[in-house]
Design a protein around this nucleic acid. Structure first.
Length: 479
RNA sequence: GCUCCCGUCGUCCAGUGGUCAGGAUCUCCGCCUUUCAAGCGGAAGGGAUCGGUUCGAUUCCGAUCGGGAGCACCA
C-alpha cells in the first residue's frame, strides 16, 4: 500500500479563513500520521479576486501554524508547478483529450446568449432552474471561433462514492447539465482544474469542507471520463457563525492572522479547530504529537457546528498555562513582539522567562501576557489613575514606608525571605497584610490587580522594589 | 422548486437497545485568599416532533419539522 497523498488547495482571494485552516489541518494530520505527503496547491483561477498579497498571507499563515507542506510553493516537488495559473497548458491538454474521446465538446454559445436564455426562462417561470440545453453538443467544430469546453454529462444513472466521514453517498445524474470545463480564455473552472491537478499530482485522498460535497459527483464523472483512478473523499462538516450563518468577517475575527495578532498560540488554534467536528473520547487538550497520534477520519462527526469564540479563548488559555504545551522559552519568544508593540522593544528574552511564572495561570493570550508583564520592564509603572486614587492615599504613606524599610533589611531577596520578613513586620507593627497589600501593589505595579506581592517583589528585584515603594509613599503624601 | 447532507445541555464533543445520558466551555454559588487569576467543590442546563420495530428506545426504521450546501465562462 503506497503512502497517501493529500492536499490543501486554497484560493488566494483574501486571508486564510479559520474554516480553511481546519481543512488544511485534517489533511496535514492524516499525512503526518500515515507518513504520507501533504501538498499545498494554489488555486488562483479566479483572476478577478486572486492576489499575490493574499497568496503570501496564506503561506505565512500556514507557516505560523506549523502546517508544513512537503510539496508546493517555496519547496517545489516533482508534480509542480503548484499554482494553477502556471498549469494552463495541462488543462488545455486534458480538455483536448476529453474532446477527442467524445466526453466533451466545444461550445460556441456566448455568455450573453446564455444569460438571455436564463432571463427568458425566469420570465416565463420564476421557479424554473435553467440548464444548458446542449445546443452545441452535436455541432461541428469551428476552430477559429471562441469556445468553452463543456462536459457531456450523463442524465441517467447515478454516482455513488464512499465518503470517509459521511459513508456511502449516492447522487442521481438527472440533475446534471453539460457544465463548463474550460473557459473561453483557456482557464479551467474549479471542478476541472481540481480534478486535473489531483490526477496529475496523484492525490489519493481529497479532504475538504462539506460545502464541496456537491462537487464530488461531477468530479467523479470527470475522473471516469479521463480513465483516471478516483481518489478517496472525506468531507468535513462546516463551521458556522454562532447564529448559524456562514462564518465570515461580519461575525468577528475569522482569519488566522487576526488570532495571531490577538496573541493566540498556533497549537491552541489547531487544538480548537481539531476538536471541532472531531473527537477522541473526552480529551479536550492536545499537543501536536498527540493530535497526530489520535487523529482518524471515523472519529469525525457529520453535523455542522457553530464557532465559539469563548471556548476558543479557553483552549488558548489552557495552552498558555501549560509548560508541556507551551514551554517557557517559546512563550517568552512569542511574547517579545507583543511587548515591543507596547513600546518595550528592548526587553531581553531571559528577563521574560524569569518573570513568566508570575502570570502563567493568568494570561489567556500573549497580548494579555504582555500587558501583565509590562510593569516589570519599565523604569516606572504606568499608574492606573483609579487604583492610585483609591489606594495611594494619605494614610497609606506611613504604611508603605514601614513596609519598605522592613523589606530593605532582607539580606537574601527571595520570595520566602521576603514573606518571612513581612510577617515579622506585621507581627511587631500590629498591621495586617491587607492593610499594606493594595497600596504596595499599586506602588509596585501601578494596578490594583497583579500576581502575589512577594512574586512581584522578587521578580522586580531589591532596587526597583524599594524605589517604587518609596515613590508610592511620596505619591500618597501628595494626594 | 430540485438534488445532496445534517439534528444529544446555550456552544463544542462523548456514550448507550435497559445508564443517575458523560466531558469541556459558558453562567451562577461556595471554598481558598493580600488583589486578580488559577485551583478545588457545587448548581443549573440536553437526545426536535410524531409514528413504527421491541419486553424496553436517545440509540434501529419511517415521516414531519428545523438547519445547511449547491443548482455560474466563482471557488
Amino acid at each position: 500500500m503506497s503512502k497517501p497523498r493529500l492536499r490543501f488547495a486554497p484560493s488566494p482571494t483574501g486571508y486564510l479563513h479559520i474554516g480553511g485552516v481546519r481543512t488544511a489541518l485534517f489533511n496535514w494530520l492524516w499525512a503526518r500520521k500515515t507518513g504520507g505527503t501533504f501538498v499545498l496547491r494554489i488555486e488562483d483561477t479566479d483572476q478577478e479576486r486572486s492576489t499575490d498579497e493574499s497568496r503570501q498571507i496564506i503561506l505565512d499563515s500556514m507557516k505560523w501554524l506549523g502546517l508544513d507542506w512537503d510539496e508546493g510553493p517555496g519547496v517545489g516537488g516533482p508534480y509542480g508547478p503548484y499554482t494553477q495559473m502556471e498549469r494552463l497548458s495541462l488543462y488545455k491538454e486534458f480538455a483536448e483529450r476529453l474532446i477527442a474521446s467524445g466526453h466533451a465538446y466545444r461550445c460556441y454559445c456566448t455568455k450573453e446568449e446564455l444569460d438571455a436564455q436564463r432571463q427568458a426562462l425566469k420570465q416565463k417561470d420564476p421557479k424554473a432552474q435553467f440548464k444548458y440545453p446542449g445546443t452545441c453538443r452535436d455541432r461541428k467544430d469551428e476552430p477559429d471561433r471562441k469556445y468553452v469546453v463543456r462536459f457531456k454529462a450523463p442524465t441517467t444513472g447515478s454516482i455513488t462514492y464512499v465518503d470517509k466521514v459521511f459513508g456511502e453517498v449516492t447522487t442521481p445524474n438527472v440533475e446534471n447539465q453539460d457544465f463548463v470545463l474550460l473557459r473561453s480564455d483557456g482557464v479551467p473552472l474549479y471542478n476541472f482544474g481540481a480534478v486535473v491537478d489531483d490526477v496529475t499530482m496523484e492525490i489519493t485522498l481529497v479532504a475538504r469542507g462539506r460545502d464541496h460535497m456537491i462537487n464530488t459527483p461531477p468530479q467523479i464523472l470527470i475522473y471516469q471520463a479521463l480513465g483516471a483512478k478516483v481518489p478517496e473523499f472525506a468531507h468535513l462538516p462546516m463551521m458556522l457563525a454562532p447564529n448559524g450563518e456562514k462564518l465570515s468577517k461580519r461575525h468577528g475575527a475569522v482569519s488566522v492572522t487576526e488570532y495571531r495578532d490577538k496573541g493566540y498560540a498556533p497549537m491552541a488554534v489547531l487544538n480548537y479547530l481539531a476538536r471541532f467536528g472531531w473527537s477522541h473520547g473526552d480529551q479536550e487538550i492536545f499537543s501536536r504529537e498527540e493530535l497526530i497520534q489520535a487523529f482518524s477520519w471515523d472519529a469525525c462527526g457529520r453535523g455542522d457546528g457553530k464557532f465559539d469564540e469563548k471556548k476558543f479563548l479557553a483552549i488558548n488559555h489552557e495552552h498558555l498555562k501549560t509548560e508541556r504545551l507551551m514551554p517557557t522559552s517559546e512563550y517568552a519568544e512569542r511574547v517579545l513582539p507583543f511587548l515591543a508593540a507596547r513600546g518595550l522593544p528592548d526587553v531581553k528574552k531571559e528577563a521574560v522567562e524569569r518573570a513568566l511564572y508570575t502570570i502563567r495561570e493568568r494570561a489567556r493570550t500573549f497580548v494579555e501576557a504582555a500587558d501583565m508583564l509590562d510593569y516589570f520592564f519599565r523604569a516606572e509603572p504606568v499608574m492606573d489613575e483609579k487604583a492610585k486614587a483609591k489606594f495611594l492615599v494619605k494614610d497609606a504613606a506611613p504604611r508603605l514606608r514601614g513596609f519598605r524599610d522592613a523589606l530593605a533589611e532582607v539580606s537574601e531577596w527571595t520570595e520566602a525571605a521576603l514573606e518571612a520578613r513581612a510577617n515579622a513586620y506585621f507581627e511587631q507593627s500590629g498591621l495586617q497584610m491587607k492593610d499594606v497589600a493594595q497600596p504596595a501593589r499599586v506602588a509596585l505595579t501601578g494596578r490594583s490587580a497583579s500576581p502575589g506581592l512577594f512574586q512581584v517583589l522578587y521578580v522586580l528585584g531589591r532596587e526597583a522594589s524599594l524605589a517604587r515603594l518609596s515613590r508610592g509613599a511620596e505619591i500618597a503624601d501628595a494626594s
